[in-house]
Computed example of a mutant assay.
Amino acid sequence: MNDAAVLDDNAASTARPVTPSTILAQELGDVCRQLAAAGGVDAAVLDRLQRARDLAAGLDPYLDQCTTPESPALTELARRTRGTDWAAPDAGGGRLEQEMLSGHVEGQVLKFLLHLADARRVLEIGMFTGYSALAMAEALPDDGVVVACEIDSDVARFAQECFDRSPAGHKITVEVGPAIDSLRRLAAQSPTPRFDFVFVDADKSGYLDYVEFLLAGDPLSPRAVIAVDNTLMQGQPYGDTDLTVNGAAIASFNAALTYDSRVEQVLIPLRDGLTLIRRTP
């Protein structure tokens, strides 16, 4: 990725709504503007709609405000990610977008979960520019390790540059290539590395395969937790809407997980949905 793909802060594009709450806020805002322009709408009804819009629009900023601030290294990584033109051919050519960044609140949730789990070894499936990998590395002890799988070599280089400039970046090892191939390489090592925590945020059609690989093999420590991102997928799995390819993949994943007797899970409405999974005793 060359400098032509990097924008200055003022030119960085505005993130589009990609979570149920931000999509709801945008929809309510559009309805409020249309009704106000049309005229003849009862003022009390319009006021209620505007309050509903404000409730939805204010949620994420308030969560951000009330969450422990991110580290300077994470702030810089996020700034570089948001300041990059991901539509440029040498920056992914439209396959990537800044909205793929995990972000402040989710990063802090992951750090909190690692502290609770007393984790030392973490596996990440799908890294993008490395925000979640670096956040988790910051939560690990000095001898902790994050193994991050990323299919895009250019994005992996972008992330590695950020890791090299950060105090915790030395804890992260990046595996470049299709995630399932990286998982097989890890499983073939002797002894097989075992992980206390796994974060899955990769291609949605691969989610079932990744979790099945983790559950069927021996890469997990006895009390390991698997966290899977985007399991609300913009509200598509439960909304009255046509499913995209990703929406259909997540709906299938959620349904399969619900009836899997090997695990117990909870879907948390954080950003675009975060499902926590653990093996049943």
Rank of each mutant, 00 (worst) to 15 (best):
M1Y: 05
D3L: 15
L7S: 07
D8G: 03
D9W: 06
T14N: 07
P17G: 02
Q26G: 01
E27T: 12
L28Y: 04
V31I: 15
A38Y: 00
G40P: 02
D42S: 11
A44F: 01
V45N: 05
L46K: 14
R48P: 00
R48A: 14
Q50S: 09
A56R: 03
A56W: 03
D60Y: 09
Q65H: 11
P69C: 11
T75D: 14
G83F: 03
W86E: 07
A87S: 15
A88S: 11
G93T: 09
G94H: 05
R95S: 12
E99G: 08
L101C: 09
S102E: 00
G103M: 03
A117G: 09
A119S: 13
V122P: 05
I125M: 04
G126L: 10
G130E: 07
A135G: 10
M136W: 02
A137E: 06
A137D: 06
A139N: 08
L140V: 03
V147H: 13
E150P: 07
E150A: 03
I151R: 14
R157A: 15
R157P: 00
E161G: 13
C162N: 10
F163V: 11
F163G: 11
R165K: 14
G169R: 07
H170P: 00
K171W: 01
V174T: 10
V174G: 01
V176A: 01
P178A: 11
A179Y: 07
A188G: 11
S190N: 13
S190L: 09
P193G: 06
P193S: 08
V198Y: 10
V198T: 14
V200I: 15
K204V: 04
K204M: 10
Y207V: 12
Y210P: 08
V211W: 01
E212C: 04
F213L: 08
L214P: 00
L215Y: 08
G217V: 13
P222E: 13
I226Q: 02
V228G: 03
V228A: 14
V228T: 10
V228P: 03
D229M: 01
T231S: 04
L232F: 11
Q234C: 15
G235T: 07
P237S: 06
Y238C: 09
G239A: 15
D240A: 14
V245I: 12
G247I: 11
A249L: 05
A251Q: 12
F253G: 10
F253P: 08
N254P: 06
A255L: 10
L270G: 04
L270H: 01
R271E: 04
R278W: 08
P281E: 10
